[in-house]
Design a protein around this nucleic acid. Structure first.
Lengths: 217, 217
DNA sequence: GGCTTTTGTCACCATACGGTGACATATACC
DNA sequence: GGTATATGTCACCGTATGGTGACAAAAGCC
């Protein structure tokens, strides 16, 4: 009779196991995308039995929530204000802030992977990150208004929403494609081009409304 | 002995079956997202045996390609130029064009669903739509340059890429969320607000570069 | 020492997936 | 009419998934 060799049992350390599981989630998101995260895949990647995932995190959603709490997925408002620094005008602060935003996102490839999967894959992790985004943008709006006052005749929330949406989307897309609408989006150099245009757009949106027909030079 | 009742065989009509299968693809994308499209799901939804999918389309990629060819996923350049109509300036044409773009996208929920899944789900259908997008934007750039000439000191490609990215992304996100960055994005009315800001951004990006320090009113 | 709890391992289950071979029969062609 | 082909139906296969119950043994507690 063939007796199956039992696996050499791991040393018992719940903390370590939990960390291994959470790390595995990050690696899978990065390598195969958020959609590839599943109980079996995580257990395999972590080298832990899947029953432990159920025991420690309840279910996949619980695991997502734990992962969302453990990770660093976003810039903080303080960081952002510091990046804007002593910008003399609201426009300058916005330009610096959006550059900072892009740089911080680039530093967090897992966040970009989640953003890429957001519209298609409404998991608890996605919801958690969306909440962070909304909270941050509200805080930031408030802080900016305190410092610079409300811009006259301009819609600051719409402006930042549009530009942040474009930046997030293009950064996420750059993970898999090289060109969008004829513009290279992969490298940081290419983004200089985009930021030049973004700067001009900001100036336009914050400029006092011009009377019609004054555009021709 | 129990004899299983055979299914009442369908009338034999390959064309009709193929259409039923392709229609099923669209319904699934719309209802459950691009990620839910699979051989079994499509066969079930179409009420056809899955072996017919293999026979008629080869495999899932072949099915995607057939679906991409059969469908109407995008505006045509002629339509777009007509929408811009007799806009007197490049800026006016751009504003009208982007509004047209958004309206046309809204009319094509399947396209929006595919865009939503694009970053996460690189199927043959996604690739096909990406190709359409790139081809269209190049054609359009050319047509615009022919009519209005190249804008001085402005990066037309970057400008349209950024604004189209923001619009596509927010429209796709509006399928599942209500607010982005504090701005409502669900209804067409809410979009009026966004378009007002987009107009100002376009004016800014197309305005001749202003000398520095001239911003304070 | 003896007991309970915690951690880890393993063997299952039902379900769904993509994919294939075998068969039945309506239709088209000679 | 007779035959080949196209269309449709069904029964499988191997694999993977999410999920659970049973067991072994280390760690903690009295």
């Amino acid at each position: 009779m063939v007796t199956k060799a039992r696996m050499q049992p791991k040393v018992r350390d719940r903390e370590k196991t939990e960390r291994a599981i959470l790390d595995a989630v990050g690696r899978i998101i990065l390598r195969d995308g958020l959609g590839a995260v599943g109980i079996n895949a995580v257990a395999r990647e972590a080298g832990a039995d899947k029953v432990l995932i159920y025991r420690y995190f309840g279910d996949l959603d619980g695991l997502y929530r734990a992962y969302a709490e453990a990770g660093d997925f976003w810039w903080s408002v303080e960081d952002m204000l510091e990046a804007a620094g002593d910008a003399p005008t609201l426009g300058a602060a916005l330009k610096a802030g959006l550059r900072h935003h892009a740089a911080e996102m680039r530093k967090r490839p897992v966040t970009l992977a989640v953003i890429a999967a957001e519209p298609a894959n409404r998991t608890a992790l996605v919801v958690a990150l969306e909440e962070v985004r909304e909270r941050r943008s509200l805080e930031l709006m408030k802080a900016v208004a305190d410092r610079y006052g409300a811009p006259e005749g301009a819609d600051l929330a719409a402006l930042t929403a549009l530009l942040a949406a474009a930046i997030d989307y293009l950064l996420a897309r750059a993970r898999t494609i090289r060109v969008y609408g004829g513009v290279e989006i992969k490298t940081e150099q290419n983004w200089e081009r985009l930021f030049a245009t973004i700067d001009a757009m900001i100036d336009g949106a914050l400029a006092p409304a011009r009377p019609k027909g004054r555009k021709r030079p």
